[in-house]
């Protein structure tokens, strides 16, 4: 498949995956570029053992991990000042609530074990199947299932400890 088409079809998904890991737009663009460049170099060796999107996500994960290793930090889901959400369509009050709720969610996720974060990101946000998640993370499907269950339990426990209320309203502390 030619690169331009590949990029057009998959770059948004790759970008969003990387963005949720690094939480920095320029950095996410750079890593997206790196991901597709690596894909270009490895296109010949791609043996279709996974879908193209899954294969790209696996490369993206490796590229991002390399980046983290270089930076000597692994910190997913941080909700920093640079974070901005598409909330313009909401009323000011709803926007505030929305943002706070999401901020709480990001904060909660960032406190989970790294493998819980990873499995939640792929399964719940990237909508990868168990099989795809297993391919990307290099786990067995059974491990994905087990980690997913534990990750959701840990998320629930941590989120409520943080004072969040996941149904959309904010539990004021």
């Amino acid at each position: 498949m030619e690169m331009e088409k590949l990029y057009r079809m998959h770059s948004d998904r790759v970008y969003s995956y990387i963005y949720l890991l690094v939480r920095h737009r320029e950095c996410a663009e750079d890593l997206t570029q790196e991901t597709f460049y690596k894909a270009y170099k490895g296109l010949e060796a791609f043996n279709k053992q996974a879908s193209t999107a899954t294969w790209l996500l696996k490369i993206a994960r490796n590229v991002t991990y390399d980046y983290f290793r270089r930076k000597r930090v692994i910190k997913f889901f941080s909700f920093d000042k640079g974070h901005d959400l598409e909330t313009n369509a909401l009323s000011p009050e709803s926007r505030y609530e929305q943002k706070e709720q999401l901020a709480r969610m990001f904060a909660t996720l960032s406190k989970l074990k790294k493998d819980y974060q990873e499995v939640l990101l792929l399964r719940k946000i990237q909508e990868c199947s168990i099989q795809e998640t297993a391919f990307i993370l290099g786990w067995t499907e059974a491990k994905v299932k087990m980690k997913m269950t534990r990750a959701l339990e840990a998320l629930k426990k941590e989120f409520h400890k943080e004072g969040g209320h996941p149904n959309g309203t904010i539990k004021r502390i």
């Binding site: 963005y19 949720l20 598409e86 999401l102 969610m105 946000i125 996941p166 959309g168």
Partner: peptide
């Protein structure tokens, strides 16, 4: 429980 928030997180 968290589907709604996960759904919002998809919007990057």
């Amino acid at each position: 429980e968290f589907d709604e928030l996960f759904e919002e997180m998809k919007e990057v």
